[in-house]
Design a protein around this nucleic acid. Structure first.
Lengths: 330, 330
DNA sequence: CTGAAAGCGCTTACAG
DNA sequence: CTGAAAGCGCTTACAG
């Protein structure tokens, strides 16, 4: 019924519980013979140390807290994929904390701290720098390492891993301009994401350099909302190229253009962000900026393990490479 | 620096720690005046009880373990969306346990048990009934409620919530047959998922009743693999209708058909499962069987809360309704 | 190399 | 209604 405890193991192996604890945590410190004896009993009893008790006694839970806003976003689940794989490799458990928009940031981070996680991966890119600061302070007060994962902050004290979204947009916009296109749009979201604001900044810089007018079009990520929105607006506004902050938005826009009788990419070029399945399934196939989201998650988790163990790290700000995948829409 | 403990609160409020504990857990049992005094100090100190210590003392962690195989699957992340929202509502924390294919099932479930979760949501539908039994036994030995979430099992003792995938496939196949189509395929995965086997069973039953030959085509969920696979096989095999176990597979198949010069749905009807964004973004828009995955997650989590609290439940096997969303591909 | 003992920060009967 | 004390299942100095 109830599971074996360390007392059961100690009793059956005829050693003290300290010894059992040692074979689990510092096996090299115990005599090989007694170690074998204890290991045998552990196996027989199917004993696994109670993680909660261990956490209380050692002040280490070997679990990391993941703070996010929406699991169903394609980028979030890819990020999680990378995080989970690396966490498993380093034997960390994962606890998910979702921050609903209305909830207080301070309350959210305090909850995570109260759960005694050993480290925090912060994936919520909907916060401004003031709110990010609250998170930073609470984490550092509690002495818990924190890594921003695919979240942008210029605070040099905040560890982070992401790609250079600004440069990605800048370069891509430049290419579009070089093709002679002028009515270029950046299709962004109504919700302000720190990551998307970087994409916008790069676009705006390139447009400005070319003496062109920046046009950031904000809409919903929801197809049933953005489709009519595109249909209406672009009925009267010229456009010959667009970069969307997500593949799905790019495809939605592309479909609207095609329905209006435009040719892609001849009349209008369309580029998406992330390189999801949407891009491959679209017709024409979507050209997009490949953001290695899985890798960002994995690298962030790896960085966090180092921070938690107090290992030296080269840098606290990691920028992963991105590339443009040219397909048929540009 | 380090956070306030219950001792700090008790000291500053000039009461015993038992009293502080009570205002947190059984506020009605403490005098209003002292309760107010304690609450005030709690607020001042920003005190939050250490969840680990509480877990050890109370034998309740208010966390549920989610066992899954792959977060990046669209169905998994929607399931998680529903789970997270309901868990939050009932103040449960969520811990993710990923089961890599090669890992021992027994080891996986023991790990979850050792983490002292109060309940388990099992989302991994890649296991056979023997393996499912191991999970069931370990959970019940440890007295931890378990709910299969979008996983099929005919064991009447296993709580589960899903839709009737068999009927969904059966009905849809019937409709296709009623249109006079005969060369009907079920596009499934190489990996055996319990959910997909139900989809196959319903299809096969309908085909058998109509005296038609069942043709289950197994391929990868990876586009770069299934696309050439479809191209080759359907170059020489006739097909006038197909139901795919996932939207993305349906769209991939549809694209191959269109590239071969077929008309959808005139020459070949295509139907997907789940009703994801892929379906809406496809051209023509994909007709599909809507599986309310978010709801399945939410309902499973709700059922689990009842089980954890020992509340009475009407049934331990919940079947949610599904429907066919008719768009352009059938 | 091994054991006895204190302690992690709470909860929960048990008294009063 | 409130407090003193035991206990949850471990880890970790400290002795020996």
């Amino acid at each position: 019924m109830s599971n074996a405890t360390i007392y059961d193991v100690a009793g059956k192996a005829e050693v003290s519980l300290a010894t059992v604890s040692r074979v689990l945590n510092n096996p090299e410190k115990v005599n090989e013979a007694t170690r074998a004896k204890v290991l045998k009993v552990i196996k027989e009893l199917g004993y696994r140390p109670n993680a909660i008790a261990r956490g209380l006694a050692s002040h280490k839970t070997t679990t990391v807290g993941i703070m996010l806003s929406d699991v169903t976003r394609a980028s979030t689940s890819s990020l999680l994929g990378g995080i989970i794989d690396i966490a498993k490799k380093y034997s960390y458990s994962i606890k998910i904390f979702s921050m609903s928009g209305d909830r207080d940031v301070l309350d959210s981070i305090r909850e995570v701290v109260a759960e005694q996680v050993d480290g925090i991966l912060f994936l919520n890119d909907e916060l401004d720098s003031k709110q990010l600061n609250i998170v930073k302070e609470q984490a550092s007060n509690a002495n818990i390492p924190l890594v921003l994962t695919n979240v942008i902050s210029d605070d040099p004290e905040l560890a982070s891993v992401a790609i250079d979204y600004k440069k990605a947009s800048y370069d891509t916009t430049k290419e579009l301009i070089a093709q002679g296109r002028k009515a270029l749009f950046l299709l962004s979201t109504v919700t302000r994401y720190s990551v998307n604001s970087q994409k916008e900044a790069g676009y705006e810089e390139a447009m400005k350099e070319a003496g062109l007018e920046s046009k950031v079009f904000r809409t919903s990520g929801d197809l049933s909302i953005n489709t009519p929105h595109f249909e209406e607006y672009f009925g009267s506004h010229p456009v010959d190229g667009a970069i969307a902050v997500r593949d799905s938005i790019a495809v939605s826009f592309m479909n609207v253009m095609i329905n209006k009788g435009k040719k892609v990419p001849e009349d209008v070029a369309v580029i998406g962000y992330q390189n999801t399945k949407y891009a491959m399934l679209a017709r024409p196939k979507l050209t997009c900026i490949d953001t290695p989201v899985y890798d960002i998650g994995a690298v962030a988790m790896r960085l966090l393990t180092k921070l938690m163990k107090g290992e030296a790290v080269d840098t606290i700000k990691i920028v992963l490479p991105h590339k443009i995948i040219k397909r048929e829409s540009m």
